[in-house]
Design a protein around this nucleic acid. Structure first.
Lengths: 225, 225
DNA sequence: GCTAATATTTAGCCAAACCTAAATTATACG
DNA sequence: CGTATAATTTAGGTTTGGCTAAATATTAGC
């Protein structure tokens, strides 16, 4: 009798998942900000989500929410669809990596289980999307990898880029132009002392790439031995 | 300032288009029936659609509605997306022709203009969908064809099947099993006198296919010279 | 051409999901 | 440790698109 989740609720759960992935609870105002709606509306919905049977979230009044197992599974289902779609658009329909996020944001709510399977099969059950983000498998298990933020590289050290988990097309186009994408090997040339901006070089290229600390901490790599 | 049309309204316009294609106006109760909602709700929405600026329909109180040019263009846009999706699912993702309608019904509302173009290009701008229904081109012009209902065949005459415009998977699977699909050549063997049920044979096959008059009048053919 | 049956519209109501403004609770700092 | 600021919740309102029941208009049969 677990009935279909509305488009709306899927978005809430997805956002809560993203925020709570790194441990803490998701606050009302954080959610209001990423969803682009008022805090009052978020409170309202969180109460609904926590009082439904079965509940999707655990609501700690004034202290944010966390997902129940059901809520987490629902979020992962959407995340799987989102990332499969992104990969499909790039691999099969000639999209650039900066064009896929917005498109997937809409399509993820329109995918039937059958279509999800067909897309997964057409891609050979891919484990990563175009940004290097892991795609949960059909049982919603995340391929988890040991990842290091790019900013943790020591000067002179090198590593391979794993993820560039950014949605903003402008940022992605900047990185694309510099050649910084999942798979390439980079070397840390220097780090500015005060603001921790880093200077990189892609193996085999001469050009120097400048990455601010906020962006650099989101990009993850595997450090070379 | 022509803002985005809601999912809902797209469905109304699509249905009105389907009903009014054959000339007459679309009545409140016809729409209520195909949309699966009450007649009162339909009246309400039709009034809204006729009073919006610009209006999507012309509302003749107690006598049904017809589409304005804008309404027709909006309906054709959705119809194009619907049929492109059906064709894509069959050609690129291994769907059977009885599985695509429901899927397209949802996806048609989630397609961006860019994705519509990519799908169109990937298919080489197809002119027909898997049921033989014509796909409006990018300017919303319908490839129009001289079509004859299957039931107009004389006994002994033959023709090529052009369209099998049915949505019901059961019907489609029955026809599929008999081999009756767009492109095949059929010959009318006989017609029962009272209820006009017809008996067909597909060129090159021995099996006889029985088609009732309601179904037969929806299937269209091109009569052989 | 009248009347019964049918179709349509009007009126009034509901639920979902948003909003703003006001009230409350939590937090942070002097 | 008390108070100012910030975050959250409550209260009350709006819009969208449904609903039912009652009123009205149309149509068909006699």
């Amino acid at each position: 009798m677990t009935q279909d989740i509305s488009h709306n609720i899927q978005d809430y759960l997805k956002r809560i998942y993203e925020i709570t992935r790194s441990g803490q609870k998701a606050s009302t105002s954080q959610l209001a900000q990423v969803l682009g709606i008022s805090a009052a509306s978020v409170t309202n919905m969180l109460q609904k989500l926590s009082k439904s049977s079965p509940p999707y979230v655990i609501y700690h009044k004034h202290h944010g929410v966390e997902l129940t197992e059901l809520g987490k599974a629902s979020a992962l289902k959407i995340l799987r669809r989102h990332r499969l779609i992104e990969q499909y658009l790039v691999e099969k329909l000639g999209y650039a990596w900066d064009e896929v996020h917005e498109e997937a944001e809409i399509l993820e709510h329109a995918l039937s289980p059958l279509l999800e399977n067909r897309i997964d099969a057409a891609l050979g059950s891919p484990r990563f999307d175009p940004h290097g983000d892991p795609i949960p498998d059909a049982n919603l298990n995340m391929p988890n990898m040991q990842q290091t933020p790019l900013t943790h590289l020591a000067v002179g050290e090198s590593g391979s880029v794993i993820r560039v988990p950014h949605e903003d097309p402008q940022v992605l186009r900047y990185l694309e132009k510099s050649g910084l994408r999942p798979g390439v090997q980079v070397k840390l040339l220097s780090r500015t002392p005060y603001d921790q901006t880093i200077h990189l070089q892609i193996t085999g290229k001469n050009e120097e790439i400048i990455i601010g600390p906020n962006l650099g901490s989101q990009i993850t790599i595997k450090v070379d031995d």
